[in-house]
């Protein structure tokens, strides 16, 4: 069992904002709003940046052949859940 506490959506929101330099408060990212396209409007270049930040912060590597990939990036909450399940630090 890991001793660390559960991943917080607010921390992930802060990471998204810091790594993509968004002009937003972390609370402004709705947990269930889409991150890409219509919602926050992120694109594939952002995905690459974000993947790098997530790997540094949480020690997990995103890959596109993961069948869940689309689902993982669907919203802040789904991304947070995925990080929580698979993080190594």
């Amino acid at each position: 069992m890991s001793a660390r506490s559960a991943t917080s959506a607010l921390d992930v929101a802060r990471l998204i904002i810091a790594s993509l330099n968004l002009d937003l408060a972390p609370e402004a990212i709705a947990p269930d709003a889409p991150l890409f396209g219509e919602g926050l409007g992120l694109d594939s270049i952002d995905a690459l940046e974000l993947a790098l930040a997530i790997s540094r912060e949480y020690g997990l590597e995103l890959r596109s052949d993961d069948a869940r990939n689309r689902q993982v990036f669907a919203s802040l909450q789904s991304l947070t859940d995925y990080i929580d399940e698979t993080r190594t630090k």
Partner: peptide
């Protein structure tokens, strides 16, 4: 023809 977008994809 496989995925090659994220760094781990490219390495694999």
């Amino acid at each position: 023809c496989g995925p090659a977008f994220y760094p781990v994809d490219i390495a694999a």
